[in-house]
Design a protein around this nucleic acid. Structure first.
Length: 414
RNA sequence: GUGGCCGUAGCUCAGUUGGUUAGAGCGCCAGGUUGUGGCCCUGGAGGUCGGGGGUUCAAGUCCCCUCGGUCACCCCA
């Protein structure tokens, strides 16, 4: 057996799967950049406080943080999500709002791997800071929706909820606590839920499920501004034709959310891990991280899960090889070296075999590569300063002057 | 963190009640075709049966431990 393996919960993505991965990132980048979002590159690790400040009552921070002490004695955490990082960057650099950013990269959560769940997974996401205009909420949700649509996914449910703000939520939480005080909850929540009773609503255990069936709904307790905001978000989505399902129990895993929250569930995924994306508004987060009061909203999508959903729906396949030319050389390799170099410099993709293999072997490689054309250099061609061009789809061949090969290939590829 | 299932060639898997040199398909390499792929035929390479310990005359096959994979709970991308 091999001595080393990728660490638990991580995977290697090799060709051709990686090509599909690249295509997904490109699709995402296209969608959000057309909407004015610019790429932000933030560190994959932060002072652990960046995340603790933001989610002390959440599983993501409490149980799943991938943290350690570095050689300088600093407490570091590999980012479990990126919103806190991006907001930290915003607070640090104070770009002129509105600040619209997108990101792509690995995220880390120390948990047991499972279908669609890894210790290192990859997210694509956007964050927009500087306005609490409901139109921005609509834009954000619509962008997430557009990415799914762009992939060809049709079995995705958009779950939508509002968590209110610090005006209406406290009163609701009191009402909820009063209700829960008289209820029989699951083992974990029976112990306590003071920090965030909302989590009980999100609990999947039977005891909590049953106990909260008749619990008061936050949506019924929204203050006037929050209710108005939510109504505008709904109207905006209706106007764009983006279908959604109101999910009064949708709480989401991080404490910083206010008002709009949403999740994209891939119905084609059989496993419990069917959330391919999610996000929401976080109007108090910038302040919590020591910055000026700045409203914001964003979402993240999981690359691995999106691709799993695509598999389940049979859409967005790995792209076929785009190689233009395979150079076959039976004279020792020098002509192949020159030819491939020349073709590549001219913008034509080209590859070749090594190790002086037989012509038959080289053609097999050419076939497997999916190349459109083969250029053959044998003793005859070398002597006559020509190259034999073979179309690998049809099989017809022709002889071309060595000097004009690049131009000739260019014409054949058109 | 808790639990179920599984761990034999690069991949997918066979391996009878423990018994001689561990097999197949696919893939890979070579040849059949002394200048040519996709089909076909032939041959070849490749495994200390995850690792360690134990039971036994004998273990891929039984027991224990460990590592890994996988699925589930919780939660989330």
């Amino acid at each position: 057996m091999t001595e080393f393996r990728a660490p638990v919960g991580t995977r290697d993505v090799l060709p051709p799967e990686s090509a599909r991965w690249e295509r997904l990132v490109a699709l995402f980048a296209g969608v959000v950049e057309r909407a004015g979002y610019g790429l932000v590159l933030s560190p994959m690790f932060e002072d652990v406080g960046v995340f603790e400040r933001v989610g002390e009552g959440t599983d993501v921070v409490r149980k799943e943080m991938y943290d350690f002490e570095d050689k300088g004695g600093r407490r570091i955490a590999l980012r479990p999500e990126s919103t806190a990082s991006v907001v930290r960057a915003y607070v640090q650099h104070r770009p002129t709002p509105p600040f619209k950013a997108w990101y792509a990269g690995p995220h880390f959560r120390y948990e047991r791997p499972q279908a669609g769940r890894f210790r290192q997974h990859h997210q694509l996401g956007v964050e927009a800071l500087g306005t609490d205009d409901a139109d921005l909420d609509v834009e954000i949700v619509a962008l997430a929706w557009s990415v799914c649509a762009g992939l060809g996914l049709t079995q995705v449910t958009l779950l939508l909820n509002s968590l209110g703000d610090d005006v209406c939520r406290p009163a609701y939480l009191d009402a909820l606590r009063a209700f829960l005080g008289a209820a029989t909850l699951c083992d974990e929540h029976a112990g306590g839920y003071e920090k965030n009773p909302l989590r009980v609503l999100d609990c999947k255990r039977d005891a909590c499920r049953a106990a909260t069936a008749g619990a008061p709904r936050l949506l019924d307790h929204l203050c006037e501004p929050c209710a108005d905001h939510f109504a505008r978000v709904r109207a905006g989505l209706d106007g764009l034709g983006v279908a959604y399902t109101i999910a009064p129990r949708l709480v989401r895993g991080l404490d910083y959310y206010t008002r709009t929250t949403f999740e994209l569930a891939a119905d084609a995924l059989g496993s419990a891990q069917n959330a391919v994306g999610g996000g929401g508004r976080y109007d108090k987060l910038a302040e919590a991280l020591g910055g000026p009061a700045t409203p914001g909203i964003g979402f993240g999508m999981g690359v691995e899960r999106l691709l799993l959903a695509c598999d389940a729906e049979g859409v967005f396949p790995a792209p076929a090889s785009a190689l233009d030319v395979w150079v076959v050389d039976t004279t020792g390799g020098a002509p192949a070296l020159a030819l491939t170099h020349e073709l590549r410099a001219a913008g034509i993709s080209a590859d070749r075999s090594f190790d002086g293999r037989s012509m038959k072997s080289q053609f097999k490689s050419a076939d497997r590569s999916g190349a459109r054309l083969a250029l053959v250099v044998g003793d005859n061609e070398l002597a006559a300063s020509t190259v034999t061009l073979r179309d690998l789809r049809g099989g017809e061949q022709e002889t071309v002057d060595r000097a004009g090969v690049v131009e000739h290939v260019r014409k054949r590829l058109r």
